[in-house]
Amino acid sequence: MLRFEHFELAPGARLEARIERGKLHVLRLDPEHVNEEFLARYLAGGARRAQGELWLEEVKDAVGKPVALRALGEERLRGFFAKFVGFVLRDGGLLDELTVRENLVLSRRYHDVWPRRAKAEAEEMAALLGELTRGDEAGVAAPELLERCPAELNLFARRYWGFVATLLRRPQLVIAFAPFEGLRAADQAAIAALMRRYRKLEPACALLLVVSGAEARSVLATEEVVELRAGEEEFSA
């Protein structure tokens, strides 16, 4: 569904890879040389300055021929992101000016969904993911957490709710940057469980985890993972 073609992640680190539907992919990058947000920046409008091509299966021209993302206008590219791709940055990427609840419905409301429907959709999806009954380690229940601003939450909660906000849009491709970095084992397991629940809910979706350390290996030990490296592509069961 997503194809990297001579895609330059960093000077000297090129990626040739294909992200398949229904699979969990882990892309390992060297933390010293690679900025993990590079891909997000590329997809969010920096495409014209980058080296290499990126193809999304759904992006086609009028006669059905695939089109590289570089060729799309900013507006159209945003439309495709909204529909197919979800990003989760290291700290969740939630807007600090809004509460967590407002962050959860922001994207839907921006795309002309009526507030009541957006809220109902968010609650329905969160219930499916099992989030509404979840609290934090201090015993604060989820409904109360939802009314707080992201700056008041710890790294795990910010990242966790960032994940939930992204998954509420039901993207077909989820790209998460360093999802386990700096977290305790229990928190890492909680995020892995969230991803597992989402994959169960959307079996055709593809997940790409961009990591720099070895922490993903132990957390995802029981998962079937497609491992990617810059400059090569190797598969392991």
Binding site: G45, R78, F81, G93, Y110, H111
Partner: peptide, 18 residues
């Protein structure tokens, strides 16, 4: 903190929102 990126990646216009 890459908020412009995250907003754009969610299909929204960062100029309009931020």
């Amino acid at each position: 903190r890459h908020r412009f990126t995250s907003v754009a990646a969610a299909g929204m216009d960062p100029l309009e929102l931020l």
